[in-house]
């Protein structure tokens, strides 16, 4: 645990460097694909902070993504700022909302937290529709130059920050306390851990990064509308990614995001298979949740213990 060479971190950063190289030296189509992939990876890392680390299932996580999307869309479309300011605002508001919402909902355990997060997302969706400022259907569209590589490096930076943070949070004092909370919250408090403080901390991180990722998502799609910004299947996809990859780990989200993204948006989008991707991902979530709840990283951990330093 201490003084170990951080192979995992080096490995992940090497993968990220390779992605940057590929994006820089290949065509626009590849760059756009990588942007989308990394948006999903960023979302997966964001939900990993709360659901992966603490076991609190954030069904309504899409709320923070929507906050980020609207932050960027409003700034860029109404105030003509640069998208980077939109990302900064999205991250800030995502983090602040997570603190505010978490202060209330993180008091609820297990299924109550999950359901509270779900109804908040639905309430948020209805409230956005209520405001005419967000346009009919909560739709905001803006026109800015198409710069796939700039978008790529924005989301790339976000994912790198998430990887590094996940790694060090897991290894450090907070990580040990969080794992104790995940196992036995009351006993963690009896050992001196302040559960609320740690849960709020990781929830804030998760809101912040979901906000940033949501902002980039709006940037890459040149707009936002309420029914897709609050689409709960995004929450499911985020959960699916960390579940398939391995909850709470620093490798799992990138692994899971790659698998889910490629399945969902690339391999299964032939007209004949249309709709099939939802079935595949839904079925995969069921099977993995029931039979391998620790995901691919968990399988590797059990089957090849010698690979532990490389994957954790």
């Amino acid at each position: 645990m201490k003084g170990r060479t951080p192979f995992t971190l080096y490995g992940l950063l090497a993968v990220m460097a390779a992605l940057a190289a590929v994006a820089s030296f290949s065509g626009v189509a590849t760059t756009v694909l990588l942007v989308n992939l990394l948006v999903f990876a960023a979302l997966a890392y964001s939900i990993n902070f709360i659901t992966g680390m603490t076991g609190y299932v954030s069904f309504g996580h899409v709320v923070f993504m929507a906050i980020g999307s609207y932050s960027l869309a409003v700034l860029v479309s109404t105030y003509s700022t640069s998208p980077f300011e939109g990302i900064a605002l999205g991250a800030l508001l995502g983090g602040l909302f997570a603190l505010g919402i978490g202060a209330v909902t993180l008091r609820f355990r297990g299924v109550y937290f999950a359901i509270a997060s779900l109804v908040l997302a639905l309430a948020g969706y209805n409230l956005v529709l209520q405001f005419p400022q967000f346009g009919p259907g909560g739709e905001l569209i803006f026109y800015i130059p198409f710069q796939p590589l700039t978008v790529f490096f924005a989301i790339w930076g976000i994912v790198v920050a998430e990887i590094v943070l996940t790694f060090f949070v897991n290894r450090g004092k907070v990580g040990l306390g969080i794992r104790a909370i995940k196992d036995e919250e009351d006993a963690a408090a009896a050992a001196g851990v302040n559960p609320m403080k740690l849960k709020l901390y990781v929830y804030m991180l998760s809101g912040l990064f979901a906000g940033a990722a949501g902002a980039v998502f709006a940037w890459s799609t040149f707009g936002v509308n309420a029914s897709s910004a609050f689409d709960l299947t995004f929450s499911l996809q985020m959960l699916a990614m960390i579940l398939i990859g391995g909850m709470g780990t620093s490798t799992g989200p990138l692994l899971g995001a790659s698998i889910v993204y490629l399945l969902y948006y690339e391999l299964l989008t032939y007209p004949r298979l249309q709709g099939g991707q939802f079935l595949v991902v839904g079925a995969a979530v069921i099977v993995i949740a029931l039979f391998v709840p620790d995901g691919i990283v968990g399988i590797i951990r059990r089957k090849y213990p010698s690979l532990k330093p490389v994957i954790e």
Binding site: V57, F59, G110, V111, L239, G275
Partner: peptide
């Protein structure tokens, strides 16, 4: 246990996607 609670929450979330997709088809 909270672990079982999480497993069933996520698994049935997956189930809801499977059923609604099949229904759409």
């Amino acid at each position: 246990s909270l672990q079982s609670e999480m497993v069933t929450l996520v698994a049935t979330f997956g189930l809801s996607l499977v059923i609604s997709t099949l229904a759409l088809i």
